[in-house]
Write a protein that binds this DNA or RNA. Structure first.
Lengths: 102, 102
DNA sequence: TCTTTAATTAGAAGATTGTCTAATTAGAGA
DNA sequence: TCTCTAATTAGACAATCTTCTAATTAAAGA
């Protein structure tokens, strides 16, 4: 439903790589963060964006958080781009009042 | 090649809608801009991003610029996400030196 | 050449993003 | 309860994005 969040999530190479790693199976936040040239808190922010886009799901296991890929939404989003409907029918810019931003 | 630019281009709803409209066939910048709640210069900036991502091609016709969808690259990018390789093999964060940004 | 139409580029301002360090939350175990 | 490990949230700051108005470029026609 939140197509926009999905595409924003996919817009960053680190997040796409996170998804790529999850294809092999679930991973803890720590394992997932290993190998990236970023601090853990920075990685955590990327995880959050993926969660909010519902591209991954989380489950606690002791002190660890285990991330898992939610492939179906990803596929939906991409199918949406191929038909380029974005889930809707019309545009976001349907009526032109030139509202300007302030 | 520039997968990153493709995904950044897809990250904005206005640009996805532009692509959607181009599916019906080529359109001039002016026609393409009609119906969006943005000024022409703002639309022009979106066009530019799509050109830079190579998602559209342009051709001049008198005083008009005619935009056309470049579907193949779009399909490539999405196929890339489904296999989640991003065109490469490994990650961007291959070696972890925690380089920090300044 | 001058004017008109179509579209872009330039420059500015506000909002958002990405990153860091520091502090906090949550569970496990002694 | 205290401590340790795992991970997140908070706050700050630089860089990028989005939008605007104003100015510029390009082609066509009188």
């Amino acid at each position: 439903m939140a197509f926009n969040q999905v595409f924003e999530a996919l817009a960053h190479p680190v997040r796409r790589e996170i998804l790529a790693r999850l294809r092999s199976g679930p991973l803890s936040a720590g394992d997932l963060a290993d190998g990236f040239d970023l601090t853990k808190p920075s990685m955590s922010v990327h995880f959050k964006k993926l969660r909010e886009a519902d591209l991954v799901s989380v489950e606690r296991q002791g002190t660890s958080l285990i991330y898992q890929l939610n492939m179906s939404l990803l596929e939906e989003a991409l199918a949406g781009v191929l038909t380029l409907t974005d889930g809707r029918g019309a545009a976001d810019g349907g009526t032109s009042t030139k509202g300007k931003h302030e």
